[in-house]
Every structure is written in C-alpha cells, then in structure tokens.
C-alpha cells in the first residue's frame, strides 16, 4: 500500500525533475552549496527560537516571563527563520526531486513536520485560547506542557532526520524493498 502511494506521486516528481528551471538549479555549480548552507544557518534560528518557546511551555526555562511576552518577543524571529528555512528547503527539493523522492529520511522528516503543524494548530485553536488565565504561571497547564514536549521531540526528530537525509543508504530493509530508487 505504501509502495503504491509513492508510485502515484512519482510522475509529479519526474515532471518537476524535467523542468528546465529544476535542471538549471541542479546543474548550478554552487547553487546547492548556498541553499544548504542557508538552510542550516536558518535551522539554527528556527530550532533555537522554537526550543525556547517550547521550554517556556514545558516550564523548563524562562518560567518567570509571561507566555505572551515570550511569544511576542520570539515569534517574529521564528517567522523570519521559517521563511528562509522553508524557502531554501523547497528550492532544494525543487532542484533535485528525484534525489529526495526515494529518500526514507526525507519522508520521515516531512511526516514529522506535518504532525508539528497539526500540534501547533491544536495549541493555537484550543490551549492558547485560555492563555490569559495561566500565562504568568511558572508551570503551564498539562495540555500546554504536553504540546511543548511534543513540539520539542518532533523538532529534535526533524533535525535528526534532516541530517540523516544525506545517508540515503542507512534505511530499513522494508523501505529498500519498496524499490523506489
């Protein structure tokens, strides 16, 4: 079932792979170097800022600063980092789609980013609505702490799987058996 799902997506990746702009980026001498370097530097900004936000939610750090102040102080930097990080990530994918298509770690990372987005949306839609009641508490309510721990774990996972994308051969046997590469 997983194999057929990926086979359904293959034509899209092959279509992008053949686009002149994708080929041009792929064949650029230093394009990938600049993109990956900017991706890693912006990762430091995104992960560093989000770690402090999550550590405030979990009560691990910055416990004396109101939650809303942490958010208003850090989130503009987070958004700037996300724009650069996601932008460079997207262009890397666009320039080498058939490199990432069969990569286990790439899809693992995308799955975790999806869960992170859902976790953030759930926090925003539900838990954050009552933030006025607990934002000065050194330890946030259980639901907020759980959202923070989930986010911390998933961001750590995103960093690990992002690094492991370079090791496309170190993957489970069942993934190799899908024969995507």
């Amino acid at each position: 079932m997983i194999g057929s799902l990926f086979e359904t997506m293959r034509p899209l990746f092959e279509w992008v792979d053949a686009m002149p702009s994708s080929v041009s980026l792929r064949e650029s001498l230093n394009g990938y170097v600049y993109l990956l370097t900017a991706h890693v530097v912006s990762m430091g900004l995104v992960a560093g800022v989000i770690a402090y936000w999550d550590m405030r939610l979990t009560g691990v750090a910055l416990r004396w600063i109101p939650v809303s102040k942490v958010k208003s102080g850090l989130f503009p930097w987070l958004y700037a980092g996300v724009i650069i990080n996601a932008g460079t990530g997207f262009v890397m994918l666009y320039s080498q789609p058939m490199r990432y298509y069969p990569n286990f770690w790439f899809w693992f990372k995308m799955g975790m980013l999806l869960i992170l987005a859902l976790n953030a949306a759930y926090f925003h839609q539900n838990i954050e609505k009552t933030v006025d009641q607990w934002e000065r508490d050194p330890v946030a309510p259980l639901k907020a702490r759980m959202a923070g721990y989930v986010s911390l774990a998933l961001w750590a996972g995103v960093i690990v799987t992002g690094r492991m994308t370079a090791y496309s051969g170190l993957v489970p046997q069942w993934w190799i058996d899908l024969g995507l590469g």
Binding site: M43, G44, L45, A47, G48, V49, A51, Y52, G73, L74, W77, W155, A156, I159, V160, G162, R163, M164
Partner: peptide, 19 residues
C-alpha cells in the same frame, strides 16, 4: 545528529541574549 541538536540549543541560548 547529536552535534546538530546541540547546535540548535546553542543557537537558541546565544540568540535570545544577543537579540
């Protein structure tokens, strides 16, 4: 991977104070 995780923590600790 551990090195990169430490980069993230270090970057956060540097940035919050530098900003």
């Amino acid at each position: 991977c551990i090195h990169l995780l430490a980069v993230a923590v270090f970057a956060g600790a540097v940035l919050v104070v530098d900003l």
